[in-house]
Design a protein around this nucleic acid. Structure first.
Lengths: 195, 195
DNA sequence: GCATTTAGTGAACGCAACGTTCACTATCGA
DNA sequence: TCGATAGTGAACGTTGCGTTCACTAAATGC
């Protein structure tokens, strides 16, 4: 019923509708071509409602991406199958980048230069932290089993797998296919961390 | 004297002036804020002259970056000091990214979605190829000396060092400082390739 | 060295999207 | 029920885009 009789939405209801519209636009036309008027129209909202909440397109899309990102957080438990676990998480990251969320990231990169540093930092941390936690967990598990070197817990190493995937995604139009992910895993990550 | 009496420039003379103006703008205001009118004004050229050559901002900046990129090509010979050579080349890449060239890359990333795939592919190859060649040379040299594993010649591995630097640059506002480059080298690249 | 062709200039234009404003109206909560 | 709050939608000025055009400087040919 919430959807069938919009009447006039307010507060979070409206905000979520705007986010959904923004993400849909993002997916359809890509970051550079998202127009505020299109988002407003799609959300069946007034432009003024957007500008009342966010000062510009960059902030709106950032907010939308954040809204989506918090939804997608997976609670992951290592199974003991090191390669299998890594592959699963890496594929998950790649899949996540194939959504509007990925497009948001791409756009954010393009505008880093004209974004306040603290905002940049905060957003990057917000994305990296959960990934670091998951990989650290997997590596700790491996270390306990003796299949992974203790050095794998070094922050640069922990970040390596997501870095490879993200770099691939950013420098092409799409995120890495499964074969490439397996190459990253078998030719770089596993050789580096294996005990 | 070429500069002192511009009179009315044409051909390559004018084109280079436009490139320089574009790169200067890129450095000053960042990709997203480069305006055609500003480039034209800076180059003391008419807007029509820009549009006669390139269909839009993206193409102009790409052309400018390419013009600059070909200048910067280093001819590198391995010295036999594996770590030293790698460090040197990695620092060079990082330095290159701190110039307008880096800003051009950042902008190009942001617009990948709305760029023809073949253009994307071509540009990426153009950037990657010389890097691959240099790292492959260094690794081959190391293999010959017995300090590097033969597996280091795997394309994914050869690309690893530039990938780390580029990823750092793209996800922050600046390219990695020397300490970080050394961490990449000592914690990831060297452990992976050392025999 | 003069006339013709080629290439650049700069001002003007229509267009699209930005970001703002305002009079109006639906919803909430006291 | 009534006031306060929040959203609507149309209009507006502004900016930058990409194009056009009459004009002019440089190069080329004779």
């Amino acid at each position: 019923m919430t959807e069938s009789t919009p009447g006039r939405r307010r507060g979070d209801d409206l905000e979520h509708a705007i986010f959904d519209a923004a993400l849909a636009e993002l997916a359809e036309v890509g970051y550079a071509n998202v127009r505020m008027e299109a988002v407003a129209a799609r959300a069946k909202a007034g432009k003024a409602s957007l500008y009342k909440r966010w000062p510009d397109r960059a902030r709106l899309i950032q907010a939308a991406a954040r809204y989506k990102a918090t939804e997608v957080e997976p609670a992951f438990e290592p199974s003991g199958d090191l390669r299998g676990d890594l592959l699963k998480v890496m594929k998950h990251i790649a899949a996540q980048q194939s959504t509007p969320f990925g497009e948001a990231i791409r756009g954010w990169i393009g505008e880093l230069r004209s974004t306040p540093a603290e905002l940049t930092e905060e957003l990057r941390t917000k994305i990296e932290t959960p990934r670091i936690r998951i990989f650290a967990k997997i590596y700790e598990d491996g270390i306990a089993r003796g299949t992974v070197k203790p050095e794998a817990l070094n922050p640069r190493v922990v970040n390596l797998a997501p870095t490879l995937i993200t770099h691939y995604f950013l420098t092409r139009a799409e995120s890495p296919p499964d074969e490439v992910i397996e190459e990253f895993l078998d030719q770089i990550v596993m050789p580096l961390i294996s005990a």
